[in-house]
Amino acid sequence: MSNRIIPLLTVLAALFAVWYLAAALMNASLQRDLFANNDNKSYTTGDLINSSLNMERPKLPAPHQIASELYKLVIATPPSSKRGLVFHARITLEETLIGFAIGAALGIGLAVLIVSIPLLEHSLMPWIVASQTVPIIALAPMIVVILNQFDIGGMTPKAAIAAYLSFFPITVGMTKGFRSPDPLQLDLMRTYSATSAQVLTKLRAPASLPFFFASMRIGVAAALVGAVVAEVTKSEDGGLGARLLAGSYYGQTVQIWAALFMAAALSGILVALIDGIGRLTLKRWAFLT
């Protein structure tokens, strides 16, 4: 255990050191101008460094500034307040989960179709792949507008974009997973004269479990990216993407970084949750020993 933790901590410590150095260097010129504007000519290098790391609108905020902003917005602000990050994170989380649920259902459904109907694979799969070489996110603003025309506002458009982004890795992963059983096992099912539905439920589905969790992991992360970008294009309803946009609009760098860290934490928690469930399930089914 410790031979994993120590390298990780060393790298993290180095990262923090570089970050502080970069923050001091990047902000110094801004801070020098600020001192000059205030006719403060007698500042020392220590003063300069210290103030560069505590500016209100730095080019690069120092880690402790982000931490204190996060503390202020997450713990010190009541969760129901629109000014707090918990409020916005909840909106993003809901959109992500709805979108992910739709994307997972669609992805698994398509994979089942592709595995059971060979003709569909040849006609559908190239388009599914092509649909991803298209920068889907470019569609986001339009999906929002189109659904708005039908008076579908609020969360649905964003969940739709989240679903669109998350279905692809799930389709590809599950197609691979459903195909993962050995030819010998498939032959065995044939000697049992199993129907294709039986092959699916008794052999293909259980065999695909490791692929299932791997694709869920990617799918949920993709859904979160979709939700955040969709919020950027329709920021009135709040969400972490809206905070990013507002921060960039008003030059509030600390706010941007805080929203970014919140999104990262959200994604980390969702992925860890799926990993945990996956590990337990795979152990039970003896994929992991």
């Binding site: 921060g247 929203a259 990262a264 994604s267 980390g268």
Partner: peptide, 14 residues
């Protein structure tokens, strides 16, 4: 696994 795309506004600022 993180939504790295969120760095976009920061990069535009820099």
């Amino acid at each position: 696994a993180l939504p790295i795309i969120g760095v976009a506004p920061i990069m535009v600022m820099w």
